[in-house]
């Protein structure tokens, strides 16, 4: 039997060790932020937002096309994936039996674990090959496909929280199932669905791998849906592994912009849940 003192010392040491682990985990985070902010701020300038990339090796230029490209890709991805995710989630809770619901739930869970590079290869085979061109829409397809599981599962979890009596209250008035779902059920849970969805959008906005063989990147200005398009994460990747100092500098600037975009989305999403409704 260990002595009382030794046991207490062990308790202290282990508590300290766990604290150390927590600190160790935070260090990379602080380091990443410190570097992205200091290197990003010193590298960023107006040109970065307003100019196109310069030819290889030439200093200067910016990522205007990549910023617009990312915004376009993400918007298009949201445009198809959010309705699909929400309505599929509605089906799971409102109409599907337990068997079918768990099949769809399982599909979504598995889908969210598929490596993003595999999604990229899939989108390439499905859209780029038949269309014989890298394109904006294939990139938006890949990003949207990655967004669906998040939207679907969030919608499901949120709709489940809506008390049954609210639905019955609406149906008892002779309101159709469709109007009940849209105006009563979904509108009640909208803040929660927005939060979950925006977190998902923030994640896909930073994705690079699914865009490698779909959006592909473009050094010139293009917003054509059927042509290759630049994207911020892609541009950061290309510049980061380049041997040119000016490009590396711009990669940090791009990282700063990307991280700001992602965190603004995360913060906005959190504030959406502040509006709470009490059910009784």
């Amino acid at each position: 039997m260990k002595s009382h003192l030794r046991r207490r010392a062990e308790n202290k040491i282990m508590t300290g060790l766990m604290f150390l682990f927590a600190i160790l985990t935070i260090i990379p985070l602080i380091s990443i932020f410190a570097f992205v902010i200091t290197k990003g701020v010193t590298s960023i300038n107006l040109d970065f937002f307003t100019h196109l990339p310069k030819p290889v090796g030439e200093p200067g230029g910016g990522m205007a096309n990549a910023i617009v490209g990312t915004l376009l890709l993400v918007s298009l991805a949201c445009l198809w994936a959010i309705p699909v995710g929400i309505l599929a989630g509605v089906y799971m809770v409102e109409f599907a039996g337990p068997r079918i619901a768990s099949t769809i739930r399982f599909t979504a869970d598995v889908l969210s674990g598929i490596p993003s590079i595999v999604i990229g290869v899939f989108a390439y085979s499905l859209m780029v090959l038949p269309m014989r061109s890298f394109s904006t829409i294939s990139g938006a397809f890949a990003l949207g496909f990655m967004l669906i599981p998040t939207v679907l599962r969030t919608t499901e979890e949120m709709i489940k929280l809506v008390p049954q009596t609210l639905r019955e209250g609406a149906l008892a008035l002779g309101i159709s199932r469709f109007k009940t779902t849209i105006h009563i059920v979904l509108s009640t849970t909208l803040p929660g669905i927005i939060t979950g969805t925006l977190l998902g959008v923030a994640r896909i906005a930073g994705e690079t791998a699914p865009l490698l063989f779909t959006a592909f990147g473009n050094r010139v200005w293009s917003t054509n849906l059927f042509e290759p398009i630049a994207a911020l994460p892609l541009q950061i990747f290309v510049y980061a592994i380049s041997p040119f100092e000016d490009w590396q500098r711009q990669a940090w600037a791009g990282a700063l912009v990307l991280i700001m975009m992602v965190f603004v989305l995360s913060v906005v999403s959190r504030s959406a849940t502040k509006r709470k409704y009490s059910f009784s």
């Binding site: 008390p163 019955e168 209250g169 008035l173 309101i175 159709s176 009563i184 509108s187 009640t188 009784s280």
Partner: peptide, 27 residues
């Protein structure tokens, strides 16, 4: 055949006005 439930269940996102005319407006 209208129905009133055990616990009051007004629609939480709707105003008093819209609660009353929900059955009309949404139809």
């Amino acid at each position: 055949i209208g129905m009133v439930f055990q616990r009051p269940n007004p629609f939480p996102t709707l105003s008093i006005y819209d609660n009353v005319c929900a059955g009309l407006k949404l139809s």
